[in-house]
C-alpha cells in the first residue's frame, strides 16, 4: 500500500527534514518508476539533506560519492590494492608457488578495494546512493555514470560481472556550475529545491534548534527572507539561517527588537563575501528589522 503525500511528509518531518509540498510526491515516484532523482538548487538549500532524510526514513544506509574534477572510475567504483598485490607476489616468489595460482589469488576479493559505487551495488538492503555535486565531475565520468545507472552492473575484467543485489535509490545533486548532459537529465526525475518560504523556514528552525521559541523562529525566518531579497552576491542558505538562529539562542536573545546591535553583528555572519558585508550597513539591517513584526 503506497503512502499518501501527507504520510511521507510526516515521516520526513520525523527525521528532521521539513519538505516542500512537492517533494513527497517525487520521492513516491522514485520508487514507483525506479528512476534516480536529480536535485538542483542554489548552494545551501538542503539538497544533500534530502538524501540523508530519505535514507533515515527508509531505514537503510546512505552511501555518498562526492564528485570533483578529475574523479575517475578507480576512486568511484573499485580499485585493486596494488601494494598488497605486490607484497603477495614477492612473498609467493620466495615460496616458488605456481604462477597461475598466484595470479588467481591476487585478483580475488581480498585485494579488491570497494569504492562507493561498487559498495552501493553490492549492498542487499537497498541503500540510498547520494552522488553529490555531479556537475563538478568531468563529462567522461557523467557518461560512465549514465551507463551504470541504467544497468546497475559492473564488469571487472579480472573478476567478472557483478550485478546489483538490490537497486539502490539514487539521488544526484547539482549546483549548476556546469550544464549537465541531456541524456543524464532525461534519465532522472527532476526536482528544483528552492529557498524555503517563511512558514517552512520557521518549521525548519523549530525542528533543528532545540529550545527556540516559535516567535523568535518566525522573526528569524522573516528577517532571512528580507536578507535574501537584498542584492547580494552570495545569498544565505538554510544552513546559514540555522547558524544564525543558534547564535541568537546562544546569546540569549528572545526577541530581535531587544538588541538591534547584536542582531546586526550576528547577521553579518550570514554574509560570506567582503562586498556583501560592506553593503550590509547597520541602516540596512535596521530597515529589515523594521519590517519584521
Amino acid at each position: 500500500m503506497p503512502l499518501s503525500r501527507e504520510q511521507i511528509a510526516d515521516q520526513l518531518a520525523a527525521v528532521g527534514y521539513v519538505a516542500d509540498r512537492e517533494l513527497p510526491v517525487v520521492l513516491q515516484l522514485m520508487d514507483m518508476l525506479d528512476r534516480p532523482l536529480l536535485l538542483e538548487g542554489e548552494a545551501g538549500v538542503g539538497k544533500t539533506e534530502v538524501a540523508k532524510a530519505l535514507a533515515a526514513v527508509q531505514g537503510t544506509s546512505l552511501i555518498r560519492l562526492q564528485c570533483y574534477e578529475g574523479l575517475d572510475q578507480s576512486t568511484a567504483l573499485y580499485e585493486w590494492n596494488y601494494q598488497r598485490q605486490l607484497l603477495a607476489i614477492h612473498a609467493r616468489e620466495s615460496e616458488h608457488a605456481d604462477p597461475r595460482a598466484v595470479e588467481q589469488d591476487i585478483f580475488s576479493e581480498r585485494f579488491l578495494l570497494e569504492r562507493p559505487l561498487l559498495a552501493a551495488i553490492r549492498r542487499t538492503d537497498r541503500p540510498v546512493l547520494l552522488i553529490d555535486e555531479i556537475d563538478r565531475a568531468d563529462e567522461e565520468f557523467e557518461a560512465f555514470l549514465l551507463e551504470l545507472l541504467s544497468d546497475f552492473q559492473v564488469s571487472i575484467p579480472e573478476l567478472g560481472t557483478i550485478k546489483a543485489e538490490s537497486i539502490p535509490r539514487v539521488v544526484l545533486t547539482s549546483n549548476g556550475t556546469r550544464e549537465l548532459s541531456d541524456a543524464l537529465r532525461r534519465r532522472c526525475l527532476y526536482h528544483y529545491v528552492d529557498f524555503p518560504d517563511v512558514e517552512r523556514e520557521t518549521r525548519i528552525v523549530l525542528a533543528r534548534i532545540p529550545g527556540i521559541s516559535t516567535s523568535l523562529a518566525l522573526q528569524i525566518a522573516r528577517m532571512v527572507e528580507g536578507v535574501r531579497k537584498e542584492e547580494l552576491r552570495k545569498v544565505p542558505g538554510v544552513a546559514e539561517t540555522l547558524d544564525w538562529a543558534a547564535a541568537l539562542v546562544g546569546l540569549d536573545i528572545a526577541n530581535l527588537h531587544d538588541d538591534p546591535e547584536a542582531v546586526h553583528e550576528t547577521l553579518r555572519c550570514l554574509l560570506k563575501t567582503k562586498e556583501d558585508r560592506a553593503r550590509f550597513t547597520p541602516e540596512v539591517s535596521a530597515r529589515l528589522l523594521g519590517k519584521v513584526a
Binding site: 509540498r21 512537492e22 510526491v25 517525487v26 513516491q28 515516484l29 518508476l33 532523482l37 538542483e40 549548476g176 541531456d182 537529465r185 532525461r186 532522472c188 526525475l189 527532476y190 526536482h191 528544483y192
Partner: peptide, 14 residues
C-alpha cells in the same frame, strides 16, 4: 507534481 518531475530536466523547464 508527478508529471513535473518526469518531464522537467532543468530549472527553466521547472
Amino acid at each position: 507534481t508527478a508529471l513535473k518531475a518526469v518531464a522537467c530536466a532543468r530549472r527553466s523547464d521547472w
